[in-house]
Amino acid sequence: MKQTKEAAPAAPKKKHRHSFNYPWMSAAVPLVVLLVALPIANSRFLTVSNLTSILLQAAVYVIMALGMSFVLMTGGIDLSQGSLLALVGVVAAYIVEHQGSIFLAVVASILVGALVGLANGTVISCLKIPPFIMTLSTMYLCRGLTLVITQASPISITNASFRWIGSGRVLGIPVPVIIFVVAAAVGQFILSYTATGRYILAVGSNREAARLSGIKTRWNECKVYIISGVMVAIAGIVYVTRLGAAQANAGQSYEMEAVAASVLGGTSVLGGEGGIIGTVLGAIVVAIIRNAIVLLEVSTYYQQMITGAVILLAVIVDVQRKARAAKRVD
C-alpha cells in the first residue's frame, strides 16, 4: 500500500516526514551495506562490466520474482514457477528449432505460461485448494511433462536471432536487463495505476471486506497466478536464450529464489502488502551476494548459507523497524 502511495504522482510531500516506512526499505538496507562494503573489499566490484554482469545474472530472478510478488500479495504462493520455467523454455526452443518462427515461439511460451497460471488460479480460487498444494502439484506436473517431451535430452538453440534475446545488447545494455526493467515497469503500473492492483492488495489484506465491497475476489486471485505464469514465460525465454539450450532440469528451486527476493523486498507472505521496487532490489541483493562470493574467492559452498543469513537478518531488522514505526504512529 505504501508502495502505491510512494509511486503516485505528486504524492503529498509532507507524508515523508513521519516515516521512512516503505516496503522496499528492507532490501535497501542490505543493498547499501553491500554497495559500501564490497568496493572496499575488492576494487573490481565497482566496474561497469561487473555491475552489468550482476544485473544480467539477476534478470531471470527479477522477472520471476515480480510474478511471485503478485501471488504473495494475495496471501498465496506459486511453487510451480521453476518447473514452468523449464517447460516454457523447452516449448520455445522446440518451436524455434522446428518452425523457425521466433514470434510463434514467444507467443506460444507466453500462452503456455498463462494457461498454467490460469489452471493454478482457477483451482485455487474456485475449488478452494490451498495455493501451496495446488502449485506443488503443478510443479511436479510441469517438470514431468518437460521430461516426457525432451526425454531428458537438452534442445540446443542454433537460431542466432533468437539467442540475441539472451545475449544481445542495445546501447551497451544487455537485452535481458532491458526486459526486466520493462517487466518491472509494467508490474509497477498494474499495482499502482490500475484498479486490478488495488483489488489484489485488497483481497490479500481482507478478503471478506473486499468481497462485500463488490470486488470479484476469485477472479482477482486468479489473475495473480496468470501474471506469475506470464512472468515465468518471459523469464524462461531469457533463460534459454542466454544459455543457448533448453533443459528439462532447468530452473530447479528458482521459485524459492523468487520468494526470497520478494520477501527481502518487503512483500508480506501473509498477503496485502508488497511492492515492485522492493522485489527488484531484493533480487539484485541476492545476485550481488552471488557475485561477491566469486569475486572474493570464497568457496561457493558458502553461498547458500550467506544468502540465508542475509535474508533472515534483513527480515528481522525490517519487522523490528515496522513494529517501531507502528508504535510511533499510535
Binding site: M1, K5, S192, Y193, T194, A195, T196, R198, Y199, L201, A202, S205, N206, E208, A209, A210, L212, S213, G214, I215, G272, E273
Partner: peptide, 28 residues
C-alpha cells in the same frame, strides 16, 4: 468486514467505486 484496516482512508472510501468512478480506461 467493513474496512481494510491496513489500507488508507482514501483507498477504503473509493474501493467499491474504483472501476465505475475513478478509472479512465484501465488507468486510475
Amino acid at each position: 468486514e467493513g474496512l481494510i484496516l491496513s489500507k488508507s482512508v482514501k483507498e477504503n472510501i473509493t474501493l467499491p467505486s474504483l472501476k465505475r468512478k475513478f478509472s479512465k480506461g484501465v488507468i486510475l
